[in-house]
């Protein structure tokens, strides 16, 4: 379970996260949507402990992550898998080394076991025989699938997806969303998906949170959003230009 309470973050004198409160129950997948610059990715990075908020608290499975040291953070981070917007694949490692990196860092597994696990995952994301390639030899869609594999390899109970389909064509986006849906269907993972692709997100999230200018302006299930009478919510959901 993730509990975010009264989180504020300033950039200079500008408030980029403005008093966010949010509870994400165990085992649910939440879609974080909103216009560009609304603070979605930043909120996600605050949850992952990568960005320190100016005030507020973030509890991950009961552990406070705001203001704790790197040593305590270690145990929290090993519960989290993250898919980054800009792929964030290590360009000096092969695909195989990239995907196996989280397991190698956790320790306690032989190289043999890690290799088997990597090969199994590469088949699952439909990238056989790419083990020895480097990230710059892959297409955008392939890189996203490698990042996905790296995020999930350690079976973390919490998953953060930061814009998993940014810059991908509709067919490839569909494949990525299918992978996310498959993960969710297994049950047990709590996850946040940041995306602009509302069409693709509709069917794979249990509930949605709409952000604008650093605030949460709406949160609820798909039915509640569709029933909302607030113009901003309706416009954003249906992708209409505001007038």
């Amino acid at each position: 379970m993730i509990r975010i309470a009264e989180v504020y973050k300033y950039r200079g004198h500008e408030c980029v996260i403005n008093g966010v409160n949010l509870v994400i129950p165990q085992g649910t997948q939440v879609g974080l949507i909103g216009p560009g610059g609304a603070g979605k990715s930043l909120l996600m990075k605050i949850c992952a402990g990568l960005v320190r908020p100016d005030s507020g608290s973030v509890l991950i499975d009961g552990t406070e992550v705001v203001g704790i040291g790197d040593v305590e953070m270690t145990s929290v981070r090993s519960k989290i898998g993250m898919l980054f917007q800009n792929y964030a694949l290590f360009d000096f490692m092969t695909v195989e080394e990239n995907i196996g990196f989280p397991l190698r860092q956790l320790g306690g597994r032989t190289e043999e076991e890690i290799r088997d696990e990597v090969n199994r995952l590469l088949l699952a994301v439909d990238l056989p025989n790419t083990q020895k390639l480097f990230p710059n030899e892959l297409s955008g869609g392939m890189k996203k699938r490698v990042t996905f594999a790296r995020a999930v390899i350690a079976n973390p109970p919490i998953l953060f997806y930061d814009d998993p389909t940014a810059g991908l064509d509709p067919v490839t986006s569909g494949k990525i969303f299918a992978l996310l849906e498959e993960r969710r269907a297994r049950g047990g993972t709590t996850s946040i998906v940041v995306s602009h692709d509302i069409l693709g997100m509709r069917d794979i999230c249990d509930s949605f949170v709409l952000m604008d200018h650093g605030r949460i302006v709406f949160s609820g299930t798909r039915e509640q959003i569709e029933a909302s009478t607030r113009p901003f919510v309706g416009q954003f959901w249906r992708g209409e230009a505001d007038d």
Binding site: A48, R77, S78, F84, F90, P102, L106
Partner: peptide, 10 residues
Amino acid sequence: EQVDALRMNN
């Protein structure tokens, strides 16, 4: 974001 990815993997 490779540095963030490093930090996420401890």
